[in-house]
Amino acid sequence: MDDRMNVSFVIPCYNEEDVLPITIPKLLKELEKLRNKDVNKTLVYLVDDGSTDRTWDIIDRLSDECEFVVGVKLSRNCGHQRALLAGLNIAEGEAVISMDADLQDDITIVHQMVEEYRKGSEIVYAVRDDRTTDSFFKRQTALLFYRVMAWLGAEVIHNHADFRLMGRRSLDQLKTFKEVNLFLRGMIPLLGFKSTKVTYQRGERAAGESKYPIRKMLALAVDGITSFSVRPLRLVALMGIGFAFAAMIQLGWIFYVKYSLDTAIPGWASTLIPITFFGGVQLFCLGLVGEYIGKIYQETKQRPSFIIEKITKEKSQ
């Protein structure tokens, strides 16, 4: 009896007209080897996240030319995490592998991921074994991010992005998460299923530009921190207590200088500096609290995370 499994791939795409004609043929060629060894059927879901270039036209054409390619068009740009979730929610098969369109992720380790799944791991994380291809700034900020997330108590896999295999059980449970502010790298470890890791070396981007500039990386980091820990709010409270205590000490010192030493010199610095400092601290704390309140506001609306406008092929019956 043929016990080979069905595996799907989910690839979010945003303005990838330069890279798709290069990477998809490579991916399909690798998947042909996979079908000959471990897998009965593979489908590749290309999720267009509201691209403004010819990305959807290319996806539509690839879907017509190849029976294994399914195009999914979102009604607008929703962001990488939501586009990825849209693909995970509709993908068929016993297991689904998510990866980026630029194929910087090493597709040759897919067979290892499938093998680990067969051994009993419900989730298989692909983890970079080094970051030598990154700039010094990106390496250091990534290291800082993982350290901060670990300190905050969030379960985040070090040097892992969104290149992973998920079995059907974990995918079904992921659908029960209804939060709007998505940070899948933190949500998926919360599922608690048996998992393992495989390592790979990340390559250079085949063409085009990265869709994760510093601004988006910082936004993702803020989402991750504020979505998985209330410790920053506790730090704000402790900070307030600390500054109140420091103010009482300063007040005592002022009285001591004025009435005991009689050496107080009139000036604006002793007034202006504390006001400016504490004013900045207050604005920071209000901004942090506002970030959490804003997330609560978004969650209470219960708006859909994405709207699918079109799917090029109907689901298998």
Results as ranks from 00 to 15, higher is better:
Ile225Lys: 02
Ala264Glu: 15
Leu31Phe: 03
Asp64Pro: 08
Tyr212Ala: 13
Val236Arg: 00
Ile22Lys: 06
Leu184Arg: 02
Cys78Leu: 04
Thr312Glu: 01
Ala150Met: 08
Gly50Phe: 02
Lys178Phe: 13
Tyr45Leu: 05
Arg147Ile: 15
Asp102Leu: 07
Ile214Glu: 10
Tyr45Ile: 02
Glu94Ser: 10
Gly203Asn: 07
Arg169Tyr: 11
Gln81Thr: 08
Ile58Asp: 00
Thr52Cys: 00
Lys119Phe: 11
Glu204Met: 15
Thr199Arg: 11
Val289Ile: 15
Val236Asp: 00
Ala219Gln: 11
Lys41Tyr: 09
Lys258Phe: 13
Gly203Ser: 10
Glu115Trp: 00
Leu182Pro: 01
Gly203Pro: 06
Arg4Gln: 12
Val156Met: 14
Gln298Trp: 11
Gly287Gln: 04
Ile11Tyr: 05
Pro189Met: 08
Cys66Arg: 14
Asp134Glu: 15
Tyr45Cys: 03
Cys13Gln: 09
Leu288Asn: 01
Phe245Lys: 05
Pro274Ser: 05
Pro274Trp: 00
Arg128Ala: 02
Ala221Cys: 13
His80Leu: 11
Val96Ser: 02
Asp2Phe: 11
Val10Asn: 00
Leu261Arg: 12
Met149Lys: 02
Leu88Ser: 02
Gly167Asp: 04
Leu190Met: 06
Arg35Thr: 06
Tyr256Lys: 06
Glu179Thr: 14
Ala150Asn: 13
Ile241Lys: 05
Asn6Cys: 04
Val114Ala: 04
Ser270Lys: 08
Lys194Val: 14
Val180Asn: 06
Gly252Trp: 03
Glu309Phe: 13
Met1Asp: 14
Glu116Ala: 13
Arg128Lys: 09
Tyr256Asp: 07
Asp262Val: 13
Arg82Phe: 04
Val96Cys: 07
Ser229Asn: 09
